[in-house]
């Protein structure tokens, strides 16, 4: 049994313009001590997947199907009392926008202490000590002074580090990090990533790392999920995804980023415009932008197919080329 099992998760937002199927049939397993990366275009459903696991969706959002199991326990439909024992204690999240997740009316120290008191077995004095320790750990200078300050007195990078300190201070089993370092400078990013890796190894923590930075994925992740238009288009070990991509979107993504290898060459961008979830094409959602789209791609969505033991993708090109080893298979390739 995996620590976290997500099965055919579907989450929609009900808006005036219609139902937005933000997450549409997402399945994966997360094992203890593993780092799972989620990449994909802006709006492809990465954050909503994370919020669905934590069940912290906006009021217009609803999980309309599927299941999320933590340690064998079903979370979809579970009561607030159950969820309260999970959130923060077992699964912590670092949000994309640090300002929205800190309370502006309390000092940073107070908020850190409260989180630690709530989620670990420490007394006030130990919590205070732990808060200071965590700030130091995430590279905040003058932690004592910082603890007495309010969030608005901190720079964006500083606030993000406080959020990371807060999520890690509770020693969760799973850390969901939604673009944790996107707003930070690379030297600070390197510190934070190393810190996360360190804690993950020491505490056996599992991490779901959402990012658009393929470099961060390459450095950090054991497994990778690639999302497009609310679904998983490809999933596998990091090596498989980077060295043997088997979905046309992933291939396009790899060709469009500057690397050390394509020095002096023109990048090959993915053409066309990002998907509109309210006007989804009938067949493969990537077909309108795909250079290799065939007739069948325009009419029928490809199912997830195994490429090999470590790799699955949903793309008709693999069927054409006889690369599919079998349909469906385990959620985690």
């Amino acid at each position: 049994m995996a620590l976290l099992e997500v099965n055919n998760l579907r989450t929609s937002f009900f808006t005036d313009a219609g139902e937005v199927k933000a997450v549409d049939g997402v399945s994966f397993f997360l094992e203890k001590g593993k780092v799972l990366g989620i990449v994909g275009e802006s709006g492809s459903g990465k954050s909503v997947t994370a919020y669905s696991i934590m069940q912290i969706l906006a009021p217009t959002g609803k999980i309309v199907g599927g299941s999320v199991k933590f340690d064998g326990r079903e979370l979809v439909g579970a009561g607030e009392d159950v969820l309260r024992t999970i959130r923060g204690n077992k699964i912590s999240i670092i949000f994309q926008d640090p300002m929205t997740s800190l309370n502006p009316t309390y000092t940073v120290g107070h908020q850190l202490e409260e989180a630690i008191l709530l989620h670990t077995n420490r007394n006030r004095k130990q919590a205070r000590e732990r808060a200071r320790e965590m700030l130091e750990l995430v590279g905040v200078n003058e932690p004592d002074k910082r603890l007495r300050q309010y969030p608005f007195e901190h720079s964006g990078g500083m606030r993000q580090r406080v959020m990371i300190a807060m999520a890690l201070a509770c020693e969760p089993d799973i850390l969901i990090a939604d673009e944790p370092t996107t707003a930070l400078d690379v030297t600070i990013q390197a510190q934070i990533l190393e810190l996360m890796q360190d804690l993950q190894r020491k505490m056996g923590m599992s991490i779901i790392l959402i990012t658009h930075d393929l470099g961060v994925v390459a450095q950090m992740c054991d497994e990778v999920i690639v999302m497009y238009a609310g679904g998983i288009c490809e999933q596998g070990t990091a090596d498989e995804i980077f060295y043997n991509p088997k979905h046309e979107y992933t291939k396009g993504l790899m060709r469009s980023i500057p690397t050390v290898g394509n020095d002096g060459q023109r990048l090959q961008p993915i053409t066309g415009t990002p998907i509109d979830l309210l006007n989804m094409p009938k067949g493969c959602p990537f077909a309108p932008r795909c250079d290799n789209a065939m007739k069948i791609c325009l009419t029928q969505r490809a199912e997830r197919m195994q490429i090999n033991a470590d790799h699955a993708a949903a793309c008709w090109v693999n069927v054409r080329d006889g690369l599919n080893a079998g349909k469906g298979g385990e959620a985690n390739a």
């Binding site: 390459a218 060295y243 790899m254 050390v260 290898g261």
Partner: peptide, 15 residues
């Protein structure tokens, strides 16, 4: 330091 901190989009090199 700055250049060594850049995460490279290639798992073997990055690791």
């Amino acid at each position: 330091s700055l250049l060594s901190a850049v995460p490279l989009p290639d798992p073997k090199i990055a690791r």
